[in-house]
Write a protein that binds this DNA or RNA. Sequence first.
DNA 1: GTCTATACCCAGATAGAC
DNA 2: GTCTATCTGGGTATAGAC
Lengths: 204, 204
Amino acid sequence: MIAEHTAPNDSGNTRSRITEIADQLFYERGYEHTSFADIASAVNLSRGNFYYHFKTKDDILDAVIERRMHKTRGMLEGWETEAPTPAARVSRFIHMMVMNGPKIRQHGCPVGTLCAELSKLEHPAQPKASLLFTLFRDWLARQFVQMGYPRNADALAMHLLARSQGIATLANAFNDEGFIHQEVEQLLKWLHDISTSTPATGEC
Amino acid sequence: MIAEHTAPNDSGNTRSRITEIADQLFYERGYEHTSFADIASAVNLSRGNFYYHFKTKDDILDAVIERRMHKTRGMLEGWETEAPTPAARVSRFIHMMVMNGPKIRQHGCPVGTLCAELSKLEHPAQPKASLLFTLFRDWLARQFVQMGYPRNADALAMHLLARSQGIATLANAFNDEGFIHQEVEQLLKWLHDISTSTPATGEC
DNA sequence: GTCTATACCCAGATAGAC
DNA sequence: GTCTATCTGGGTATAGAC
């Protein structure tokens, strides 16, 4: 593990710049509809040079998914440390939809739309993309366990995830950000109810 | 309006056959990822002849959306006449997810995924595709009005639509049909609750 | 109405000079 | 590491014979 001579100029930076731009473009325009040329021009690279950093388009997708995994993990850890109670932490998740309201209205949920697209393409990376959902799912389930719902924590997590996805889909289809607020209110009420009521044996 | 000589052999049939196949392929593979060659070969037509029936790909999309509008209207009218109460009619809507479970698991909701894709493409037909949602939205709202919720019938309709979309998205992402059943149970309970309880002034 | 042939463009991907 | 030039394939779309 001696310092190798593999410390290229700023290829690491270039690579992450490409990944960052690709992440954004895949979200805004979709994976298939984003071309190498789109990404290259956004990063100010020639198409030829592009292939020095990524051999195939699938490689870029892989890097983008990994980047999203990393960012998501960081966000969840942040909520974990910032918010004192499980209910407050889940509330952070719900509020995320309000914070990202304008982008959701324009492009839907980054995770949901990517999974849907890769599913239609029968793309090999589809299972990997679904792991982004799993990240949220498991994190939410842990919160519900701490809230006193060990038996159906996963069902509650999936329920909340589904509600969020539906909100994003319709807010996007109808170009209606107000709908997000409207539904978030209901979700917060739902969260309040289950976090204050005594968990019944087979609740929810 | 005298009978014109525009009654070509079976071009009407060919056209509707193309539209039917395109409808299916757009659902299964997505709009952009479906090529003329895909459709033509599925209909057993040469690519050249294809253009006799549709000038551009957008024209096919238009025809597909109109076909879906037509079919949806027919389905909703069917539920309207078959089911005696508004609650029973909404229940038909909810059960549709169970009936289409396998396809939803594989390809998501036909309406939701089309709207999401067209949104990313910034395709001119996106608003037209959203009208498919509007069809369900208005129909559901009418049922909730009849159920005694004139004030927030539309909010209830949107809520139910969103729940359905979320269920479809996650069932697809996790390839999990059981999740549909699980959530449909909850939706039926929700429907039962609001259809039997006395509507409060600002309920739900 | 149906076909073959083909124009045209843009995508992903490669070669090789600098 | 970056560039230009280029290959190859597939996509939409057209022309014109039958």
